[in-house]
Computed example of a mutant assay.
Amino acid sequence: MSPAEATARPLNVALAMGPGVGRRVFPPQRLATVTEPLRLLSPDPITDFSTPEARRLLEETEVLLTGWGCRMIDGAVLAAAPRLRYVLHAAGSLKHHVGAECWERGIQVSTAADANAIPVAEYTLAMILLANKRVLQIGRELHRARAAVDPEKLFPDLGNYGKRVGIIGASKIGRHVIRLLEPYELEVVLADPFVTPDQAAALGVELMGLEELVASSDVVSLHAPSLPATRNMIDAGLIARLRPGATFINTSRGELVDQDALLRRLEEGDVFAVLDVTTPWVLPADAGFYTNPNVLLTPHVAGSLGTELERLAASAIDEAYRAARGEALRYEVKAEELAFTA
């Protein structure tokens, strides 16, 4: 679309996501920002593309703002949406929502993965600092003792000064974690087969092999995408190489880790783990991770929740305005990128 065409009339916008998602991600005050040169066809998201109302909206839609739970946008959906030119996803991963047919038809696709990376990186930063300070372990001991405890007697090496933090994966989240770590006097190292030494230097980190990183880091934080090639990438051999006293943090996906091997190592009592993700998503009630004192489990809270959800909507709406002005999308996703993104 040329700039002249972009200003000729508003672009028709519709929402598509799972039941209950619309109000959480696109609250009324955020939808109120969708004004000219955009035209919101309905404040109610499409939750089922096959209904008569959905078909009516799709007939007019040029920009589709999608979110969690959106049904797959495949050839059948596109056949009902002849004017559709943009799919702007107000979340991270596209793989369960946007079919290859979209790119084949020339539809431009973008994602709010950069916006969603912010709270995950913030959570990771907090856990790194707490892990090196041994806050969780010392707090647990204080609760148990109900009396004075000596932190340095419990953990003579506690503290963040000079500790090594190993980042696995220079993903959007991994790179944001690296940026957040810059003000701290930590040594940050990176393992990523797709990053060159020059690129690592530009990020301000040292590039090293995965085995060396795992064996030498005080905190190991996983930020690789979930792909067939990365399943169980943190295997029993790597887990055995974790140095005594190390903390392993996973905010990526549970399937990237051999969880049985991790639990066995944790049961030895010399390493710690912060797990925001597991496989399955909710562990069975008898899972050993619940009772192991060296584990902090959180229920997938690192990603956008609460007030952070509106940041995703703001990102997608901003993309819609760029489309309406005839500008390039800021966070466009190309078809060839799907092979190595989550």
Rank of each mutant, 00 (worst) to 15 (best):
T7K: 15
T7I: 07
N12L: 07
A14W: 12
L15Q: 03
G18Q: 13
A32F: 05
A32W: 14
E36Q: 11
E36W: 05
D48P: 00
D48I: 04
E53Q: 13
L57E: 04
E60G: 00
E60Q: 15
T61R: 11
V63L: 14
T66I: 00
W68N: 08
C70P: 06
I73P: 03
L78E: 04
R83C: 09
H89F: 03
A90C: 02
A91E: 01
G92E: 08
A100H: 12
E104C: 14
Q108D: 00
Q108C: 01
A113S: 13
D114K: 09
N116H: 01
N116C: 08
V120K: 03
M127Y: 11
M127C: 03
L129Y: 01
L129A: 02
A131M: 00
N132A: 02
G139L: 00
L142R: 11
H143Q: 09
R146V: 05
R146Q: 15
A148E: 13
D150M: 07
L154I: 15
L154E: 04
R164Q: 15
R164M: 09
R164C: 08
I167M: 03
I168H: 06
A170K: 10
H176V: 01
L180V: 04
Y184D: 06
E185H: 15
E185V: 03
L190V: 09
A191I: 02
A191R: 09
D192Q: 12
P193Q: 12
A202K: 08
G209T: 05
E211L: 14
D218I: 08
D218C: 07
H223I: 08
T230G: 06
T230Q: 07
I239M: 06
L242Y: 09
R243Y: 01
P244C: 11
G245Q: 02
F248Y: 12
L262W: 09
G269K: 12
T278Y: 04
Y290Q: 10
Y290F: 15
P293K: 14
T298W: 07
T298S: 14
A302K: 02
A302I: 09
L305Y: 01
L309I: 10
E310P: 00
R311Q: 14
S315Q: 12
S315P: 00
E319Y: 00
Y321N: 08
R322K: 13
E327M: 14
E327S: 03
R330S: 13
R330I: 04
R330N: 07
L338P: 00
A339P: 01
F340H: 08
